[in-house]
Amino acid sequence: MIDFGYTITKDRQLDYDRGDMRYYRLVQSLEPSVDVCMECGSCTATCSAGQFTEFNIRKAHTLIRRGNTESIKAELRKCMFCGKCQLVCPRGVNLRNLILAMNRAIELLG
């Protein structure tokens, strides 16, 4: 490749117009409570996996809702399925089933 002396930086924005909403739609059908999250962060604050890695369960399901699934595929494997997040959620989001649903969507849709 010819070196023109510059590189092209990848766009950082969450481009909703190009988002892949198939994951969200599937997750939503499997666990509708995903829609009532108020982004309070209780789940992430209490998550053991999130204390030691970059894994952020709140951001993971928010990114799916934004149509941006790529970045969380590897992240989701860090969840230990302990259910602490669900115990503290003030909106009653069924987080354990939500995590299963997210994994299922990734399994089915690649």
Partner: peptide, 12 residues
């Protein structure tokens, strides 16, 4: 006190 600092996306 333990929370998430949701604006930086990190446990706080």
């Amino acid at each position: 006190v333990k929370t998430e600092d949701t604006l930086t996306g990190k446990p706080f």
